[in-house]
Computed example of a mutant assay.
Amino acid sequence: MRIWFKSWKDNHMLHDFMVEDESDETRTHKIFNAVDKACYEFDTSKPVWLDSTIREFKRHGKARFGSDNFVDDIPFDYLEIHVIEED
């Protein structure tokens, strides 16, 4: 599984990060582990999965975590997650 993370500010991509996971974990565990790695890379707190974020992710394989998804202030407008390849 390959998951691409991008942080955006004022319609410009600030930083991107790719996570590849070839483990035997479930899809959900792979995604949560990838989010943990990306948040460490971006030096930000972990986002909260709101119902709207979950629906968007299930429907399109990608989602945006905005300021509502984070407890702390974030240095970007939103963090985008996009599954680009699945096992």
Rank of each mutant, 00 (worst) to 15 (best):
R59W: 07
K30R: 06
S67K: 15
T28S: 13
K30F: 01
K37Q: 15
A34Y: 10
F42W: 08
E80D: 07
F57Y: 13
E56L: 13
D43A: 14
E85M: 08
D24M: 10
I74V: 15
W49S: 04
K9F: 03
V35L: 10
R64D: 09
R2D: 04
M1Y: 01
A63R: 06
I81D: 08
F17H: 05
M13G: 00
F70Y: 15
T53I: 13
E80F: 05
G61M: 07
N33Y: 03
N11D: 07
T53W: 06
D72N: 04
T53N: 09
F17M: 02
S7R: 00
I74T: 11
D10F: 04
R59I: 03
K58F: 00
D72E: 09
V19S: 02
K62T: 07
V83E: 11
P47F: 06
I3L: 01
E86I: 14
D73G: 12
F5L: 02
C39S: 10
D68R: 11
F32T: 14
V83F: 09
E56G: 10
E86K: 15
D72V: 03
F65M: 15
D51W: 01
F32D: 09
F57I: 08
F42V: 11
Y78K: 15
L50R: 06
D43M: 10
D73W: 09
A38K: 09
V83P: 09
D51A: 14
F70L: 15
W8L: 00
K9Y: 05
S7W: 00
H12F: 02
D51T: 12
I31G: 04
F70W: 13
I74W: 09
A63M: 10
V19E: 02
I84R: 15
F76S: 12
F57T: 07
A38G: 13
W8F: 02
F65A: 08
Y40M: 14
E85R: 09
V71C: 11
E41G: 01
R2P: 01
F65P: 12
M13L: 01
K30T: 02
D68V: 08
L50C: 05
F32I: 10
I84P: 13
Y78L: 14
D43S: 15
K62A: 06
F76V: 09
L50E: 04
S7C: 00
A34C: 07
I3P: 02
K62Y: 06
D36Q: 04
I31L: 06
F42D: 09
E20R: 04
H15K: 12
D73R: 11
T26R: 10
A38P: 15
D73S: 15
V83S: 10
N69F: 05
I74C: 12
P47N: 06
G66Q: 02
K46G: 12
F70S: 15
H60E: 12
D24H: 11
S52I: 07
W4T: 02
V71Q: 14
A38R: 11
T26I: 08
D72K: 06
C39N: 08
I54L: 15
S52A: 11
L50Q: 06
I31S: 05
D72Y: 01
V71I: 13
D36M: 05
R2G: 00
